[in-house]
Write a protein that binds this DNA or RNA. Sequence first.
DNA 1: CTGAAAGCGCTTACAG
DNA 2: CTGAAAGCGCTTACAG
Lengths: 330, 330
Amino acid sequence: MAKPPATIRDVARHAGLSVASISRVLNGHNHVHPDTRKKVIEAMNALGYIPNAAARSLSTAKSHAIGVVLPDLHGEFFGEVVRGMDKAASERGYLLLLSTMHADSRLAHQAMGTMRGRVDGLIIMAPQLSAEDLAQAIPADLPAVLINSPADATHYNLRIDNRGGVMLMVRHLLAGGRKNIVHLAGYSGNLDAAERADAFREAMQMLAPDLPVRIVEGDFTDASGEQLVQQLLADGTQFDAIFAANDMMALGALQTLRTVGIEVPAKVAVAGFDDVPMARHLGLSTVRVDMAGIGERAVRRLIDQLEGSSEPPALARQSPTLVARASTGR
Amino acid sequence: MAKPPATIRDVARHAGLSVASISRVLNGHNHVHPDTRKKVIEAMNALGYIPNAAARSLSTAKSHAIGVVLPDLHGEFFGEVVRGMDKAASERGYLLLLSTMHADSRLAHQAMGTMRGRVDGLIIMAPQLSAEDLAQAIPADLPAVLINSPADATHYNLRIDNRGGVMLMVRHLLAGGRKNIVHLAGYSGNLDAAERADAFREAMQMLAPDLPVRIVEGDFTDASGEQLVQQLLADGTQFDAIFAANDMMALGALQTLRTVGIEVPAKVAVAGFDDVPMARHLGLSTVRVDMAGIGERAVRRLIDQLEGSSEPPALARQSPTLVARASTGR
DNA sequence: CTGAAAGCGCTTACAG
DNA sequence: CTGAAAGCGCTTACAG
């Protein structure tokens, strides 16, 4: 508010040098005499000089900022993934420009448009967009890395290794002696839900070909988990394990089982996917996805790309881990 | 990657006008002939023109970006508060530059320094910093709005109305006929913990002057909630209600009570503060704070300040609401 | 209502 | 190793 901030010219004047020299030490160039460097640094400190980022960007055509476009993430995930991104970005001297995006693809387009010209690249998480809408929304001239988004031949896409995670849990349930496992799937429009259901089928086929494979579809809410299990009971379906496509549905299942007095894990084992904090609290076995790790990897990869050490686009998978708790055994 | 993006000169050439005219319609200035405006818009569309944000910032000395400095927020809070901020910011045409900050005050300083020159103002949430460290870390020339931070005469500070929230819950517990309420406080270094404990004392004094006031100190973790209640039981303390300073401690309390077979709410009512998702699931009564609302208000207020309609700095409070569930009565 | 031109604060060949 | 100068792409008085 008081005096206008010092510019590079003020520093040059103060140090008795040219602006070019100031710029050189600012950017860590070689070919600067140690004495000169010292004088410059003193002058900068004396004036409390901070380079103007806009001027810098205009000159270099680089913003050193990364745009992050995320959906309306529920629960912890938002915080976790952003934390990972922030870590990776700040380590490499980048700043994060954030925009949450709603399911509407027009808004997605708009969100990315606003960022264009202000960021060097984009990280996009758009599980709810179609491949076409997504392709349309990404500005053609901006490097981008995708997270949990529909396939796309031109961008690096980081996804959860759903197959691996499901395999871990199915193996765990079978090892516990379960014979009749029912999978509560998420709603079919969701990429991860679909992959988990497919993976369940495959895992059963592979690990226990003569056991029955049952899949019923819910919508990722606890209410649907409750309902689905009520339905199974009403139908007289035999089962000794419930493997839900996410923790919320698993919690719903637990709720119903408790209500009707079916012991967990004695009679029925229950497992989820995600490892929300509640899972630990309720002793729910689950599959943990390292969201912070995904955020970190995505940013690292984007920066590598921006700075030239890029490899061809690919589909990478973040491996989940098994978290065994009381709900699947003692 | 292909051709370099169009500049304002390209648009001017394409439209057969001067760059000044392009700029005028871009900025919605009056005194532009409708025909001219039309030509400009056509040219912009034809070239897919997007103004260069850096050049704009350099000219206007405004970035239309807001820096957000948040601590390592646990759980949902991070996502919720950012969502609120993003909403308010995008409504007014601002972008959010995000940086998470760790407890270390040097890092706080650094985080804010990086933002300086790239943002028009700052939103800072620094519950863990001392007033001095905070004052030191905020660049003097940047407008800033504080959230849940130590008092400061020069900035608007938005905090949770802990008194109001505690009052609601104490009134609720008393209305349920509880006579011996024990408050599980958070660790004393925390601002909100201290306010909640004080507020508890005051509320009891005011609403039920002849009932005993008991406060024991924990540290906001569920483990400390478990421990504290075990201790109360071991000491033979009489109580028919536990009001914890946050939900995690309340969950710990529930855990201990269940373990030893004390019925909730028949024998002991349990209440928390925050309304984490788990609270709903476990039927825990609590006090809900609208974090998204806080984020929204903070951003609105900062933008008002940036755009001139500022009022003097003040301490504002976001009112919580009572969420009564099974743990405090039927 | 429109255009020519200066200026915002940097970076970077180009000379020296 | 250092400096003078052009240029990045806008905005905005200043004339007309």
